[in-house]
C-alpha cells in the first residue's frame, strides 16, 4: 500500500555517520558546500570527491545510491553543461562547425559547473540519506535557537516540520481513498487536456483540504489537552550530545577545507 513507502531518502543504519549529531552533519554539510564553491578548477574537485567518498564509505552507502540522487537533476545537469559549453565564449577554439563553436574555456566551464552541481547534490544526499527527518528538524531547531533574539520562531518551525512529517503518510493514504471514491462516481483524473485535468482535481483537492483543516483543528485540541503551550519551559526527550566522533568529523572537514583554500591560493 502507499503508506508502506518510506518517506524521503533516509536509509536507517548504525554507522559512524548515522550516529553523528545532526548538528554536526548540518554544519559539516555547510562547510562542504563552502568548500565546493571555493574550488578553483576542475582538478581540485578531487578533494571534495575524496571527502564524499570517505563519508559515504563510512556511512555504508553504495555508489549507486549516490548516483540515484542525481537522477532527478539530469535535465538541469545537461542544460548547465550545454549552455556553458556553447555560450561561454573563449579564445582557444577547438571545434568550429557552422554556427557551433566550442572553445577550450567553454569545455572547462561546462565541466566545472556540472561538477559543482553534482558534488552539491551528492554531498547533501549523504546528509539526508543518513539523518532521519526528525533528527534533521531537531538539529535545525537547536542551531537556529540563537536567532530567537530576533524573534525567529525556531521551535515552531521544528514543530511544524515534525507534524508535517507525521501527517504526510496519513494524507497520502487519504488522497488515495478520496481519489478512488470519486472514481467510483465516474471521475476521470487521467485523460483530457491540461485545463480539463486541472478541473478534475477539484473533487480531490476540496475534500483533501477540508479534511486537512479538520485534522489540524482536532490535533490542535489534542495538543492543548496534553498541555502544549509553545516552546517555553519545554524539555526534550531527544537530547543531542556531541561525542568524540563529532570532534573527529570536524577535524577531518577542517583539514579538507584547508586543503581547498590552500589550493585555491596557489592557483
Amino acid at each position: 500500500m502507499l503508506k508502506d513507502i518510506t518517506l524521503g531518502q533516509y536509509m536507517p543504519g548504525n554507522t559512524v555517520v548515522h550516529r553523528l549529531d545532526p548538528r554536526t552533519k548540518i554544519l559539516l554539510t555547510t562547510a562542504y558546500i563552502t568548500m565546493i564553491f571555493l574550488v578553483g578548477s576542475p582538478l581540485w574537485y578531487v578533494v571534495p570527491a575524496l571527502y564524499v567518498a570517505l563519508a559515504s564509505r563510512l556511512a555504508g552507502l553504495s555508489f549507486g545510491q549516490l548516483l540515484k540522487s542525481i537522477k532527478p537533476l539530469r535535465f538541469l545537469l545537461i542544460l548547465t553543461f550545454v549552455l556553458n559549453l556553447f555560450f561561454s565564449g573563449g579564445t582557444t577554439i577547438w571545434v568550429h562547425w557552422g554556427f557551433i563553436t566550442i572553445a577550450k574555456e567553454g569545455v572547462l566551464l561546462a565541466v566545472h559547473f556540472s561538477m559543482r552541481l553534482i558534488f552539491l547534490v551528492v554531498g547533501t544526499s549523504v546528509l539526508t540519506l543518513t539523518t532521519s527527518p526528525v533528527a534533521l528538524s531537531d538539529g535545525i531547531e537547536i542551531l537556529l535557537k540563537p536567532l530567537k533574539v530576533v524573534h525567529f520562531p525556531s521551535h515552531e518551525l521544528a514543530m511544524m516540520m515534525t507534524i508535517a512529517l507525521r501527517f504526510i503518510p496519513t494524507l497520502i493514504e487519504e488522497t488515495d481513498k478520496i481519489m478512488k471514491a470519486q472514481q467510483a462516481r465516474g471521475a476521470d483524473f487521467e485523460s483530457g487536456n491540461l485545463i480539463a485535468r486541472a478541473k478534475a482535481m477539484v473533487p480531490l483537492l476540496v475534500p483533501l483540504f477540508v479534511s486537512a483543516f479538520r485534522r489540524a483543528g482536532e490535533l490542535a485540541m489534542a495538543m492543548e489537552a496534553r498541555c502544549y503551550h509553545g516552546g517555553e519551559g519545554r524539555t526534550r526527550l531527544r537530547v543531542l550530545r556531541f561525542t568524540m566522533e563529532d570532534t573527529k568529523a570536524f577535524l577531518v572537514s577542517a583539514a579538507a577545507l584547508a586543503v581547498v583554500i590552500v589550493g585555491r591560493s596557489l592557483l
Binding site: E174, K177, I178, A181, Q182, Q183, D188, P203
Partner: peptide
C-alpha cells in the same frame, strides 16, 4: 469502459462523507 462498470456497480466507501466537495 470503466465508466460503464461504475454505472453498474456503485461503491460507497467507509466514511463517505469525507468525499463531499
Amino acid at each position: 469502459s470503466l465508466l460503464d462498470v461504475r454505472r453498474k456497480v456503485g461503491l460507497v466507501f467507509q466514511y463517505p462523507e469525507y468525499q463531499l466537495f
